[in-house]
Design a protein around this nucleic acid. Sequence first.
DNA 1: AAAAATTACTTTAAGCTTAAAATATATTCA
DNA 2: TGAATATATTTTAAGCTTAAAGTAATTTTT
Lengths: 169, 169
Amino acid sequence: MDDQSIPLDAETKAVEMPEDHREELRLWLRLLTCSTLIEGEVRRRLRERFDVTLPRFDLMAQLDKAPEGMTLSDLSKRMMVSNGNLTGLVDRLVTSGHVDRSVSPLDRRAMVIRLTESGRAEFRAIAAEHELWIADLFSDLTSKDRADLMRLLGKTKLSARNTIMGEGQ
Amino acid sequence: MDDQSIPLDAETKAVEMPEDHREELRLWLRLLTCSTLIEGEVRRRLRERFDVTLPRFDLMAQLDKAPEGMTLSDLSKRMMVSNGNLTGLVDRLVTSGHVDRSVSPLDRRAMVIRLTESGRAEFRAIAAEHELWIADLFSDLTSKDRADLMRLLGKTKLSARNTIMGEGQ
DNA sequence: AAAAATTACTTTAAGCTTAAAATATATTCA
DNA sequence: TGAATATATTTTAAGCTTAAAGTAATTTTT
């Protein structure tokens, strides 16, 4: 495309001049750095201010959007984590009284997980503050920056999904 | 800023009209989704194709850039993970023959970690393929998209760092 | 309906991750 | 110098995470 070198036939080029993808690599590393940086800070504050972990907060956030509860499989898909992971996470949240677990009346294999009343109240208090933290972390971006970034990340998500879905099955 | 509502005094506004930051929250969730999606796919391929984990690959990537080796603390800062984490990670890479560990001649507290010859060769083979995966995952973005995204993520990184550094100390 | 396949979840083994406490060495300063 | 402080690393305890194997219930196929 913007290759200004002397033309070579395709085969020679493939062997001697493999395309350079360092630009994409740098982009990926920067994306990962942003994500790690923000995630680490959010984890730290959740622990310090509310003595809660990020996975527990994430799980409660999903449940808060589903007043009737969700099955483990629903949670697994939404949160992009394994089923086995959720079993233990839910165990601990049941023990701490934030959620409850019951067998689905429709399907005896399925467990329905719901926030308890106190779990919901606690989650909402945390979520309100969490939202301010996030706003603060992104506060140097203009409104246009945020809109542009949103759009480009949307495109990135689709691009990645295409690649991932494309070959797996 | 772009608030076109009827003016209210500061106190009333703070109580009755807390600012809404759902936009920033959505932006953060989308950033996290992109990162999780790509990272998960990279993990999966590293394991399937090369039987290596992402943390081990990341550690070797840092060492590949430092032919004289790095101390645990250097690695810790670069990789943004705890020292204790690295102790175990390095243990396993020493066992598998990818890196070696020796006491620094300058400071008897410090451990210098280096890639072994075979570790370096293996890393480079993996890195070459890894670079293609990343290019593929971002392939639906135009060259301009990538440049814009790079710039906006740079701004995001600075914004987050400002907030994080600003209050801690 | 019986067999086969699928789906929902749990268990297990291994590794990753952190914070906090402990150990050892180096540096600063009174 | 000697005491206090700081730095580099390891250890520990707890929790997160996954893949793979196992169990149980449901759905599909024959």
